[in-house]
């Protein structure tokens, strides 16, 4: 079992290293200095308090959407709809944040819960259709993404505001922003949301690994038939998994709405936070702790990369390619796994 665990840790690390090496080769090919490039990346992520704060801020929603995808995956479901769930969560959080007046101790939790519920509702629909009618969740969640995007734009323009493109700012009492954190990080947009994300990760680990509910979800994820024979309600578990998954993604939306931005703009296109969650979950091996670590890596790459054009003269497009390569190697970890197994056999 230990060897297995080692193996599961080694594979993602090698994937990331290979991605970095491939990125370095690309930079070399285009005449840029990869060492300078990566130094700029690291500097951009950790170089000063501001960058550091921005990195942590970026990590926060990644953890939550990563958890969303990972959680569904553990129950045997592929939630491509984290993107839409982020959007509805964001909208719901801002709605509560802008319309209700209450002390913080009530207002903030309500805003977070409503965001999670909205995301959960967006997960419930595909869950229900899958459980009752056997409709594939991937198709429905993709559709739900579009519904979320255009519905939220409509609601922002016509209901929350009068033909405006952004909502009002949420009330202080519903805001995750903190002056103390901002001052500490040279006025980055760092907010308390990182704590929410870490608590969510702990919640997922506990629920899956320690409770009877988690036992059922994992069992259904591995073998639906045997679970049914053992007396578990497969449909109920599918719906529950999608609702909790959507809830995590909804919280990710609340991080943006109550923390980073403090309002919600209309979106011309998807935010990509949800889609990036798929890669985060994959890299994290669909486990809670792995997802947190993977989210940090993604946050570092995203924020650090912003410094590469100015710090090392590497154009932004190239930075995107380097990040894509790393994701590519992570996604193709199957090949690395295969090579390692091969190697292990020969070694014996």
């Amino acid at each position: 079992m230990f060897a297995n665990r080692m193996f599961n840790t080694v594979v993602p690390v090698i994937s990331v290293l290979l991605g970095l090496i491939a990125g370095a080769i690309i930079m070399l090919g285009f005449g840029y200095n990869p060492i300078k490039g990566y130094a700029a990346l690291l500097d951009g992520a950790f170089g000063n308090a501001y960058f550091f704060g921005e990195t942590i801020r970026q990590v926060t929603p990644y953890i939550l959407t990563g958890l969303a995808v990972a959680f569904a995956f553990r129950a045997g479901l592929f939630n491509i709809g984290a993107e839409g769930q982020v959007i509805v969560g964001w909208l719901a959080a801002v709605w509560v944040g802008t319309t209700i007046e209450a002390p913080m101790i009530i207002h903030l939790p309500i805003a977070l819960i409503v965001a999670a519920l909205a995301g959960g509702l967006w997960g419930f629909v595909p869950g229900l259709l899958k459980a009752k009618l056997g409709v594939h969740e991937v198709i429905i969640t993709i559709m739900m993404n579009y519904i979320a995007l255009y519905l939220s734009n409509h609601l922002i323009r016509n209901v929350l505001t009068d033909k405006q493109d952004t909502t009002d700012r949420v009330a202080e009492s519903a805001s995750l922003a903190s002056n103390w954190l901002m001052e500490l990080t040279s006025y980055s947009r760092l907010h308390w949301g990182i704590l929410v994300a870490l608590v969510a990760a702990a919640f997922m680990w506990f629920l899956l690994e320690k409770t009877t509910t988690g036992f059922e979800l994992r069992s259904v994820g591995y073998n639906r038939h045997a679970s049914e024979y053992a007396g578990m309600k497969v449909g109920k578990n599918i719906i529950l998994a999608m609702v909790i998954s959507g809830g995590f993604a909804g919280l990710a939306g609340a991080m943006e709405g109550l923390g980073t931005f403090g309002y919600m703009p209309t979106h011309a296109a998807f935010t990509n936070i949800g889609f990036d969650g798929i890669a985060v979950a994959l890299l994290g091996g669909n486990a809670a702790l792995g997802t947190v670590i993977a989210a940090f890596l993604f946050g570092i790459l995203k924020i650090g990369a912003l410094n590469m054009p100015t710090g090392a003269g590497v154009p932004g497009e190239l930075v995107e390619i380097v990040i894509a390569l790393i994701i590519f190697f992570v996604a193709s970890s199957y090949i690395i796994r295969w090579v390692l197994l091969r190697f292990k056999k020969e070694g014996n």
């Binding site: 320690k210 409770t211 009877t212 509910t213 988690g214 036992f215 059922e216 994992r218 069992s219 591995y222 073998n223 038939h225 045997a226 679970s227 024979y229 053992a230 007396g231």
Partner: peptide, 30 residues
Amino acid sequence: KFGLVLDFPIGENMVLQTYYQKPYSKNGIL
């Protein structure tokens, strides 16, 4: 297909129908 969850440890397969009962769990905690 129906008897085992092949990716579960053999020990957890042995409580596949009884995991929710005492003594294997209490108040929903395994």
